[in-house]
Amino acid sequence: MLIDTHSHIYSEDFIHDRDEALQRAYDNGVKKIILPNIDSGSIKHMLDLTDAYPHLCYPLIGLHPTSVDEDYKEELEAIEYWLNKRKFFGIGEIGIDLYWDKKYINEQKDAFRHQIKLAKSHNLPIVIHVRNSFDETYQIVKEEQDGSLRGAFHCFTGTAEEAQKVVELGFYLGIGGVLTFKNSNLDEVISSVNIDKLVLETDAPYLSPEPKRGKRNESSYLVYVAQKLAEIYNISVTRVAEITTTNARGLFEI
Results as ranks from 00 to 15, higher is better:
Met1Ser: 14
Asp4Val: 03
Asp4Arg: 11
Ile9Lys: 15
Asp13His: 15
Phe14Tyr: 12
Ile15Asn: 10
Asp19Tyr: 13
Gln23Met: 10
Ala25Leu: 08
Asp27Pro: 00
Asn28Leu: 03
Lys31Trp: 00
Ile33Met: 09
Ile34Trp: 04
Asn37Glu: 03
Ser40Met: 14
His45Phe: 10
Asp48His: 07
Leu49Arg: 06
Leu49Ile: 08
Leu49Trp: 12
Asp51Val: 07
Cys57Gln: 02
Pro65Arg: 03
Val68Phe: 11
Asp69Val: 03
Glu70Gln: 11
Glu70Asn: 13
Lys73Ile: 11
Glu80Arg: 10
Leu83Cys: 11
Asn84Tyr: 08
Asn84Gly: 14
Lys85Cys: 05
Phe89Cys: 02
Ile91Ser: 01
Glu93Asn: 08
Glu93Tyr: 09
Ile94Lys: 10
Ile96Glu: 10
Lys102Pro: 01
Lys103Arg: 14
Lys103Thr: 15
Gln115Glu: 10
Gln115Ala: 04
Ile116Arg: 01
Ile116His: 09
Lys117Val: 11
Ala119Met: 08
Lys120Ser: 00
Leu124Ile: 04
Ile126His: 13
Ile128Lys: 01
His129Gly: 13
Tyr138Met: 12
Ile140Pro: 12
Asp146Met: 07
Ser148Lys: 14
Leu149Asn: 01
Ala152Ser: 15
His154Tyr: 11
His154Gln: 09
Phe156Ser: 07
Thr157Gly: 03
Thr157Glu: 14
Thr159Leu: 06
Glu162Cys: 00
Gln164Leu: 15
Val166Ile: 14
Leu169Cys: 09
Leu173Lys: 11
Leu173Phe: 05
Leu173Trp: 03
Ile175Ser: 04
Gly176Gln: 01
Gly176Arg: 10
Gly176Thr: 05
Gly177Phe: 13
Val178Trp: 11
Val178Arg: 04
Phe181Asn: 15
Ser191Asp: 12
Ser192Asn: 14
Val193Arg: 14
Asn194Trp: 08
Asp196Asn: 15
Lys197Val: 02
Lys197Asp: 00
Val199Asn: 11
Leu200Met: 14
Leu200Ile: 08
Glu201Arg: 05
Ala204Trp: 10
Leu207Cys: 04
Glu210Cys: 07
Glu210Ile: 15
Gly214Phe: 08
Lys215Val: 00
Glu218Val: 10
Tyr224His: 11
Val225Thr: 02
Ala226Phe: 01
Ala226Asp: 09
Ser236Phe: 03
Arg239Tyr: 12
Val240Asn: 03
Ile243Asp: 02
Ile243Cys: 07
Ile243Thr: 09
Thr244Gly: 04
Thr244Ile: 07
Phe252Gln: 06
